[in-house]
Amino acid sequence: MWEIPSRRRELSRYFTGTETQLTAETGEAPIDDTAAAVRRIVDALARTAPRGEHLPGVTTELSRIADLLEARTDPVQDRLTDIWEGDGVARHDPATGPENPIAPPLILRVAEEGWVEGVVELGLPYQGPPGNVHGGICAMLLDAALAVANHRAGTNGMTAQLNIRYQRPTPVCTPITVRAKQLRAEGRKRFTVGELVVDGRVTASAEGLFIARKDRVVKTE
């Protein structure tokens, strides 16, 4: 089992009370551009003809690129350390991380009345039922948004419970507003809500319970 570093930074280094963007900025490192190119490939592959004559040549070229990358990888333990001790915990997040090729990525910003909010459009790689986003992907977006809302409120926490209500299908290839807000904190517990909204209608909502680390709890009289 890999050892996770004991010293960990908060989810994002961007919110100090004055910044408006709460998730990692894109374009800060060469890997951001590489990840964006991979997203283009994945999206195009999901939309290409599955028996196209072009595929054997594409497969050969992609295999060559995979060989190139695999020859220059770091040990997993080193990458875990980089992610948890540096800003990678935000930059590599599977929902919001610009250096993670499976992330859309979702960018969340400060909104009114304690909310965090962002707009994202998901293509066919994220499809579940025909024409709609997979329910697990909806849950991932909500979990990420709730975590960022906790960060805005002052303290992160690990997800202890996440209740998702799917109210209607969330369509692919359509702008989706993702929003979340921390309702209250009780000791180490954080109670947070969020929702996905398309064309003014909520498609999925979440209620989350998060547990903050002991060293992040601020005692009050």
Rank of each mutant, 00 (worst) to 15 (best):
S12T: 13
V120A: 03
P5S: 12
T192H: 10
L108G: 04
D143C: 02
H134K: 08
T60S: 05
Q127Y: 15
A90E: 14
V193H: 00
Q127L: 10
T59Y: 13
N100P: 09
R165D: 15
T16P: 00
P105A: 02
V197F: 12
R40H: 09
P105T: 03
V198I: 07
V119G: 05
K189M: 02
R184H: 10
E186N: 05
E28W: 04
V217E: 10
C173W: 08
V218M: 12
A35T: 09
H54Y: 13
V58G: 02
C173D: 15
N163L: 12
T60L: 07
V58E: 03
D143N: 04
L55E: 11
E19G: 07
L122N: 07
R179I: 05
W2K: 01
E112Y: 10
Y14S: 06
E25D: 14
A145D: 02
N150Y: 11
R188H: 06
V133H: 00
L146V: 13
A44V: 07
T203L: 05
F15V: 07
P105M: 08
P171T: 09
T177D: 09
I102M: 12
R201T: 13
A36H: 06
P125T: 06
G194I: 00
E121K: 05
V178F: 02
M140T: 14
V38Q: 01
P171S: 04
V178N: 03
H92N: 08
V172G: 01
K219S: 14
E112D: 15
P125Q: 01
Q77M: 03
T159P: 12
T23N: 06
T96E: 07
E53W: 12
F210W: 15
D87F: 12
L69E: 01
A180V: 05
G131A: 07
A160N: 08
P125K: 03
I31R: 01
L22P: 05
P130K: 05
T34R: 02
P30V: 08
L196S: 04
D93M: 01
A144V: 03
I83H: 01
I65P: 01
E221C: 06
S6C: 03
Q21C: 04
A149R: 01
V172K: 00
P94E: 14
T81G: 02
N132P: 02
G52L: 00
M1S: 10
D199A: 11
